[in-house]
Amino acid sequence: MSADQTIDHDSWNYSPAKLPRQSKITLGRIHGVLPYDGVRNPGFRSASSHRVWLTYRTIANDFQPKSGIAESAAEAAVAHELLLSPLLYDLQFQPLKVYLRPGDRKGPSYTHDLLATFMDGRRSLIFVRNSDSLQKPRTWRDIEAIKAATSPSAADNIKIVDAGRYSRQRRENLFRLHEAIQSPEPEVDDMVLWTARNYRSLWLMRDLFPLLDLPQKTVFKSCYRLIARGALRANLDHVIAEWSRIEVAS
C-alpha cells in the first residue's frame, strides 16, 4: 500500500487501528521476589483489556513477595480482596489448565483464573467474568463444561465472580488497601482504633486527626489499614479520603 493510500486513524477513520499482535511480556528475575509460577502467562499486550502485574505476600510463602499476573482489572480486584482476608493461606494466579475434551490435549482448553487456599484447608478455584457474559446461556454451558473437566481433587469448589460487582473506584480502593497493609504499624493502628471507638461523634475520617498526637498522614494510612482489616468500615465504591464517612465495625 502506498503512502497516499494509508488510512489515517487520527483524522477521519475513528475506528481503532488493527495492530499486529505483540509478544507476551516475560518478567525476569527480581531480587527478593519469588517468580510468577502460573501455568499460563496472560501478560500479552492488549488494546482491549487491562493486564495487571503485582507483587503479593501470603502465609504460604512466609510473607516473601511473589509476582502475580491478573488477566483483567476485575481479576486483580478479586485477588486484592482475597489478600485482605486473614483467613487466606495462599493465592495462585493461572494455577491450572484443563482440557474440555477428555484425553484431547490439542482440543479446546481453559486455564482457571485464581486458586485460593484458606487457613482451614479449603481450596476455591475462582472464575471471573463480566456481567454481560454471565447473562448468556452459552457462558453457563461453558462453565458446566469447565467444572466437568476439572478434577475434584483440584479444589473443593469453583466460585463464579461477577466482575460487575467491582466498580472502578472499588478496584482502586482494594489496590490501595492492599498497598497499605504492606507497611504494618500495629501500635499506631491500636491507638487510632481505640480513639475511634471512644469518640462518640465520629463521622468523617478527618474527625480523628485533631484527637491524636500523630501526623495526619500517619493517621490516614492507619485508617486505610484498619479498613483493610475490617476494623473500620467505609464505602469502597466511593473515594476513601479525609472527607470519607467511616465507622467502627461492630
Rank of each mutant, 00 (worst) to 15 (best):
G107F: 06
P108K: 01
S109C: 10
H112M: 02
H112C: 02
D113I: 10
D113M: 05
D113H: 08
D113W: 05
L114W: 14
L114A: 10
L114Q: 14
L114G: 14
L115P: 15
L115D: 04
L115E: 04
L115T: 06
A116W: 13
A116I: 14
A116F: 11
F118G: 02
M119H: 11
M119E: 15
M119W: 09
D120H: 13
D120L: 04
R122P: 15
R122H: 15
R122A: 14
R123H: 01
S124I: 15
L125I: 14
I126K: 05
F127P: 03
F127N: 12
F127G: 08
R129E: 13
R129N: 12
R129K: 11
S131H: 01
S131Y: 03
D132L: 12
S133Y: 08
Q135F: 05
Q135L: 10
Q135A: 11
Q135C: 06
Q135Y: 02
K136P: 15
P137D: 08
P137A: 05
R138H: 10
R138P: 07
R138N: 11
D142F: 08
I143S: 10
I143R: 08
E144N: 13
E144D: 13
I146S: 10
K147T: 13
T150A: 03
S151P: 15
P152H: 01
P152T: 09
S153V: 08
S153N: 12
A154S: 14
A154R: 08
A154F: 05
A154Q: 11
A155H: 00
A155S: 08
A155F: 06
A155N: 05
N157G: 11
N157D: 15
I158G: 12
K159H: 13
K159A: 13
I160C: 12
I160G: 09
I160Y: 03
I160E: 12
V161H: 05
V161N: 02
D162Q: 01
D162V: 10
G164T: 04
R165M: 07
Y166F: 13
Y166A: 04
Y166K: 03
Y166G: 06
Y166Q: 06
S167K: 03
Q169N: 02
R170T: 07
E172W: 12
N173E: 04
N173W: 04
F175L: 10
F175K: 11
L177Q: 07
L177T: 11
L177G: 09
H178Q: 09
H178S: 08
H178W: 10
A180S: 07
A180W: 00
A180P: 03
S183G: 00
S183V: 02
S183L: 00
P184S: 00
P184H: 00
E185S: 05
E187H: 00
E187W: 07
E187T: 07
V188F: 04
V188G: 07
